[in-house]
Simulated scan of single mutants.
Amino acid sequence: MAGGTTLPRRALGRRMRELRAAAQKSQLAAGLAIDVSKQGIGRLEEGRPVRISRVQFRELLGFYDADEDVKAEVLGLLQEIRAARGDDSNFWWRPFADVINPNFNHFISLESAASRITSYRLTLVPGLLQTRAYRRWIVEASDPTLSRSEVDHHVEVVAGRKRKLSEPGFSFEVLLSECVFRHQLGGPEVMLEQLRHLAEVARLPNVSIRAIPFDAGTHPGLVLGSFVLVEFPPLHPGRIPEAPLIFTEGFTGGLFVENDDVVSTYRSSLDELRTFASSAEDTIRLIETIADGYDSTRRMV
């Protein structure tokens, strides 16, 4: 693809690699099934351009015994790739209720493939660290029209994502404004549970949670707003990893940024934000102190 975002193509490659592995098929067997070279299947799975028709994709999905939902998901990604070809930038705004492919969540796909995630948040706890009650309040506040079953589905999706924290080789760095601990989302009881969970998770060896206190002064995060840096492992030993990207979330959608210069600027901002952040140990003490305040408030109610 000469221009435009590579995100849908990379997502398609990861998904097809997962499907082939689940079907226990080799790249050679997959290629023979649709009259494509083994190298062509490899390029597909690496998110690189390859000439495979829509008909061949359907045949390959049949070879992998994919169900109808998975077929719709993959064909939706193909449509996204075609739609992205006209975009000459490396920025891509994707509404959450995307009409192109509503069955595919790109951020969750990126999160599941990541080897390292660095998250800076101004107001909310990152999804990987949210309790069910905290997430439920966010979902209900964001869209009061959702049914109870729809809310439950959103909550369970986030709960399932937490398995990522125990994945070998994965690390998670979190920089949180002190606002995150003091905004009383859902009330004292919800916040008490959430903060106790944060204090527990902060002690995991692959998780770093550091607060940027109110008295830290002016820092770049106040201008940048919340964002996530997502980094990936090499697909094969000795190969270059997938390019990292930045994700920023708005009320109606998410902005994925792949431009190298912009990603580098965000990296530099993270380096500066770290100089304003408290130590991991001081952050745990801050969390526990604020949690004690919520506990006292809860007891008084």
Results as ranks from 00 to 15, higher is better:
residue 155 V to N: 12
residue 239 R to L: 13
residue 233 P to F: 03
residue 258 E to T: 14
residue 190 V to D: 03
residue 173 E to S: 08
residue 161 R to W: 05
residue 118 T to R: 10
residue 59 E to R: 14
residue 42 G to C: 13
residue 29 A to D: 15
residue 84 A to T: 01
residue 203 R to F: 00
residue 86 G to M: 04
residue 237 P to L: 01
residue 28 L to Y: 10
residue 207 V to C: 01
residue 144 P to D: 05
residue 65 D to M: 12
residue 121 R to L: 04
residue 79 Q to I: 01
residue 215 D to L: 10
residue 138 I to C: 02
residue 181 F to V: 02
residue 262 V to I: 11
residue 260 D to M: 06
residue 23 A to C: 09
residue 286 L to E: 07
residue 254 G to E: 14
residue 4 G to I: 01
residue 48 R to P: 04
residue 4 G to S: 03
residue 127 G to E: 10
residue 35 D to V: 02
residue 81 I to C: 04
residue 226 S to W: 03
residue 39 Q to L: 06
residue 82 R to T: 12
residue 244 P to F: 07
residue 86 G to P: 01
residue 108 I to W: 00
residue 109 S to E: 06
residue 89 S to H: 12
residue 179 C to L: 10
residue 112 S to R: 04
residue 154 H to L: 01
residue 234 P to I: 05
residue 279 S to E: 09
residue 223 V to H: 05
residue 275 T to E: 08
residue 265 T to H: 03
residue 281 E to W: 09
residue 139 V to L: 03
residue 152 D to A: 14
residue 299 R to D: 05
residue 185 L to G: 01
residue 209 I to H: 07
residue 80 E to Y: 07
residue 182 R to S: 04
residue 104 F to P: 00
residue 206 N to D: 01
residue 156 E to M: 10
residue 138 I to Q: 02
residue 78 L to R: 08
residue 282 D to K: 10
residue 161 R to E: 07
residue 300 M to Y: 11
residue 199 A to F: 09
residue 169 G to D: 00
residue 59 E to K: 13
residue 49 P to A: 05
residue 22 A to L: 10
residue 20 R to M: 08
residue 39 Q to I: 05
residue 186 G to H: 06
residue 243 A to T: 05
residue 175 L to Y: 05
residue 87 D to P: 06
residue 20 R to Q: 08
residue 283 T to H: 09
residue 182 R to D: 03
residue 223 V to A: 15
residue 227 F to Q: 07
residue 113 A to N: 02
residue 120 Y to A: 05
residue 165 L to C: 09
residue 186 G to A: 13
residue 73 E to S: 13
residue 8 P to Y: 00
residue 264 S to G: 09
residue 56 Q to H: 05
residue 237 P to T: 05
residue 78 L to W: 11
residue 50 V to C: 10
residue 12 L to F: 04
residue 30 A to I: 11
residue 70 V to Q: 14
residue 267 R to K: 13
residue 147 S to K: 05
residue 226 S to A: 15
residue 110 L to Q: 12
residue 276 F to C: 07
residue 225 G to N: 11
residue 246 I to G: 00
residue 18 E to L: 04
residue 154 H to E: 07
residue 70 V to F: 12
residue 271 D to G: 06
residue 231 E to G: 00
residue 84 A to V: 01
residue 100 I to P: 03
residue 209 I to T: 07
residue 274 R to D: 02
residue 159 A to S: 15
residue 71 K to V: 09
residue 122 L to V: 14
residue 298 R to A: 15
residue 45 E to I: 07
residue 152 D to V: 02
residue 155 V to Y: 10
residue 82 R to E: 15
residue 240 I to K: 09
residue 97 A to F: 12
residue 82 R to W: 08
residue 35 D to A: 13
residue 55 V to S: 14
